[in-house]
């Protein structure tokens, strides 16, 4: 999922995991409506759905050593029978994310951002999840460290058959990581489709602008300013992008429905 800061990507992620209640609508996980499920039934579902947050420095308890942070979820979910099994499991996880045993006795502030994101990923894997939301996991990392971390994400996905909702404002990263792309603008998904189709053949005017901004780094961006900080109460009726859109006309005062342009490529725009 790609979109600029403040468009609602992270809020959506939290709603999917039921960390925030939706004002309306439903979220289904493996066919089950989790928005209606009672809290105690959610515990098992929560184990299967995990999230990685953007800021690595706030993701771990600063007063717990890495070993304790890694072992705690397994103890809570009663996944290990004894200490020996726990130790074996922790070192196994560590290896998968490319960290060494020496890191276990350290505190979070003694690790770099890239290392912490690996610890967080290892901790999540300890619970055998099926679905992971990664909310801008590498936006605070350098390009070379980002490449290391993203490669680990990919390897682990292959190994465990995981589904990711990978959130980023970096279209190049999204393109590398995704099978499908959804583009969000001011709280709405305006285009969704196979990654290559969306990137190479963007249909919505906003998506084209986003792709062009990335490709050529030009400064036409004043056309989409005003979007991020806008008060949701003042959203226009109809298409949310209409006030900034060069194609806008009277019809845009109605909310556009999704249209399928090519196979599985959907766009919410009247002018497509």
């Amino acid at each position: 999922m790609v979109g600029q800061s403040g468009c609602g990507k992270s809020t959506l992620a939290r709603i999917i995991l039921k960390l925030l209640p939706p004002s309306g609508g439903k979220v289904f996980f493996k066919g089950r409506d989790i928005t209606a499920a009672p809290a105690r039934e959610l515990s098992a579902v929560r184990r299967k759905m995990q999230i990685i947050f953007q800021h690595p420095e706030t993701a771990l308890n600063p007063r717990m050593k890495i070993y304790a942070s890694l072992a705690e979820p397994m103890r809570i979910q009663k996944l290990v029978a004894n200490r020996n099994e726990e130790k074996a499991r922790v070192s196994d996880l560590l290896e998968q994310v490319g960290l060494a045993a020496e890191h276990l006795t350290r505190y979070p502030h003694e690790l770099s951002g890239g290392q912490i994101q690996r610890v967080v990923l290892a901790r999540i894997l300890s619970l055998h999840p099926e679905f992971i939301v990664a909310d801008e996991p590498t936006s605070m990392l350098d390009v070379s460290v980002q490449a290391q971390v993203l490669n680990i994400f990919k390897n682990i996905q292959k190994q465990y058959h995981l589904a990711y909702l990978f959130i980023s404002h970096d279209l190049e990263v999204i393109r590398c990581m995704s099978d499908r792309i959804a583009v969000m603008y001011r709280g709405r998904i305006i285009e969704t489709g196979p990654a290559d189709a969306v990137y190479k053949n963007p249909q919505h005017p906003y998506t084209s602008l986003l792709v062009n901004t990335f490709a050529s780094f030009n400064d036409q961006t004043h056309q989409i300013s005003g979007g991020p900080a806008a008060n949701p109460g003042s959203l226009p009726a109809g298409c949310v992008y209409a006030p900034y859109c060069f194609k806008a006309s009277a019809v845009c005062e109605q909310t556009p429905d999704f249209k399928e342009t090519t196979k599985e490529h959907y766009v919410a725009c009247w002018h497509v």
Binding site: Q4, D170, H222, P228
Partner: peptide
């Protein structure tokens, strides 16, 4: 993000 980055560059 990409949009702000292009603005700052400008």
């Amino acid at each position: 993000d990409a949009v702000l980055r292009a603005q700052v560059t400008g």
